[in-house]
Design a protein around this nucleic acid. Sequence first.
DNA 1: AATACCATGTAAAGAGTTACATGATTGG
DNA 2: CCAATCATGTAACTCTTTACATGGTATT
Lengths: 183, 183
Amino acid sequence: MGLSHALLAALSQEALSGYDLARRFDGSLGYFWQASHQQIYRELARLSEQSLLSVKLQPQQKRPDRKVYCLTQADKEALVSWLQTQVQPPQQRDDLLVKLYAGRWTQPTQLIEELMHHQRLHQQKYETYRQIEQTYFADTSLSYADTCIKLTLDYGLAYEQNWIKWCEQALARLAAFAEQGSA
Amino acid sequence: MGLSHALLAALSQEALSGYDLARRFDGSLGYFWQASHQQIYRELARLSEQSLLSVKLQPQQKRPDRKVYCLTQADKEALVSWLQTQVQPPQQRDDLLVKLYAGRWTQPTQLIEELMHHQRLHQQKYETYRQIEQTYFADTSLSYADTCIKLTLDYGLAYEQNWIKWCEQALARLAAFAEQGSA
DNA sequence: AATACCATGTAAAGAGTTACATGATTGG
DNA sequence: CCAATCATGTAACTCTTTACATGGTATT
């Protein structure tokens, strides 16, 4: 039920269509949750079937009708009661680390190349998050509501930064073996 | 196919039964991959059906027979060729951050309590990893093979440490609102 | 006597990925 | 004219979780 809560959390702030929600998952929800449009549309259909949220058709002239989803009072109460239950830390499943674990069967240069690739990806994400920070959270004194959101961005920033730092150390250590190998 | 690679990576180091593999996922694979015994047994059955690994029955006197899995030369080559393909960073899906995102609908004290709970969990993991580090990786000069494994442990350590640090900051920021609320 | 550990699985449900499918509009 | 964006979905498949199932041994 993970996705449904993420959808409810987003809809609790503003009414959105499936398309809008998919954009949100690319952006501000993306720091900690990812979902494809297929998943989102299916889940929204399921939730509205079960009356866990309500829909309004917003006819448009030159495009398909938008289905705008929002929460009723009861839906919001359900969300709030979920906020009060305990959740568990997420499971980790990282292919790159599986590779490192079996790294002895390949060349250090191979691992170095892929680590550098990942480092670049994390660097890019980090910079994107920094821009968002500067654009939307430049203000030093934030409201409680904004602080909550900002903390999720901070998590994203810390996560990416930590990755980059670990990558640097890993690259330095592997470099020693790459030199030996080619010497 | 993520789990299958993790299984192959583990079996490439030593022959193991399903049960042993489940233990490994609690331990040294657990820094970056989690899998339940059900998943493991099913995947092993699937892989050996497709001859992607080989099994040897090891009869035991007072216990059920152990099925010990190992890699043939061909299986190992398949693993090595996977090592040379590019993989993607994992998707993040964290319930606690969904809660923070919707934190405005609940009390700061509520969030603080849960963050503290998670902080303790991460602290415990961190300490476990530190003990493993001191027990198995005390030696300062590691072979290439051991360095690869050690880097996955380092990732685990960095991940947990980063989490704890972020938690501290989050708690400090939320504390300000908790005081205001009760004043 | 109870709990933990060893050792293996099946089955159903829930969640996520990938491929397929459609069709108009806007900007370069 | 081409690519990107808006806007919605279905279907098949894979992966993960949860519940059910069995039965012996060792330790407290």
